[in-house]
C-alpha cells in the first residue's frame, strides 16, 4: 500500500467493493456516486423517499420508483467505533468510525459511512456532516460516500 492511497482512502484496500444486487436494485445509486452525486430512491407516484432501494414504494405500493438527487448533507443519527478487525484487510486499519447519517433533504432516510478525521474523536449524535466522495479503482471503479463534520 502506498502513502498516497493511505491518505486517499479512509480504510485499507481489500474490503469488499459495493455492487448492485443481482436483480439490479441499487445500480443508480452507485452510478450516481461515481459522478459525485447522492441520489436516493424516490417514488414517482407519491414522492416518498425510500432507502434502501426496493421494487415498490412502502407508502403507496407504486412500482413506479425513480431517483431523486439529494443535498449531500445530514446529521449524525448514531455511530460506532470498531476496534476488532472483522476482515483481514482491516488488520492494520483499526480503530475506525462508522456513522449513521440522517438526510433531512430526503425524508430523513439514513446512510452508513465512515466519519473522516481523527479515528478516536468524540462522536456527537446530532452533529452536522457533509458527504465526501471517495473514489476507488480496484477491482473496478466505484465511489464510496464518506462523511466529515462541518
Amino acid at each position: 500500500m502506498t502513502e498516497a492511497t493511505m491518505q486517499k482512502h479512509y480504510l485499507p484496500e481489500g474490503l469488499p467493493a459495493p455492487a448492485a444486487a443481482a436483480d439490479g436494485l441499487g445500480e443508480e445509486f452507485w452510478e450516481g456516486t461515481k459522478r459525485h452525486e447522492l441520489v436516493v430512491q424516490k417514488c414517482n407516484a407519491c414522492g416518498t423517499f425510500q432507502w434502501g432501494p426496493e421494487f415498490c414504494c412502502h407508502k403507496c405500493l407504486s412500482f413506479d420508483m425513480g431517483w431523486g438527487k439529494v443535498e449531500p448533507r445530514g446529521t449524525i443519527y448514531s455511530w460506532e467505533r470498531s476496534w476488532y478487525p472483522v476482515h483481514p484487510a482491516l488488520k492494520n486499519g483499526v480503530p475506525y468510525i462508522a456513522v449513521l447519517v440522517e438526510l433531512p433533504g430526503a425524508g430523513n432516510v439514513r446512510m452508513v459511512g465512515n466519519l473522516l478525521g481523527d479515528r478516536e474523536q468524540k462522536v456527537v449524535i446530532g452533529a452536522k456532516v457533509e458527504a465526501v466522495f471517495e473514489d476507488h479503482t480496484d477491482p473496478e471503479p466505484y465511489t464510496l460516500v464518506q462523511w466529515r463534520v462541518v
Binding site: G26, V86, G93
Partner: peptide, 8 residues
C-alpha cells in the same frame, strides 16, 4: 454494499 465497504 451499503455497509461492508465501510467495514461494517
Amino acid at each position: 454494499a451499503f455497509t461492508a465497504p465501510y467495514g461494517v
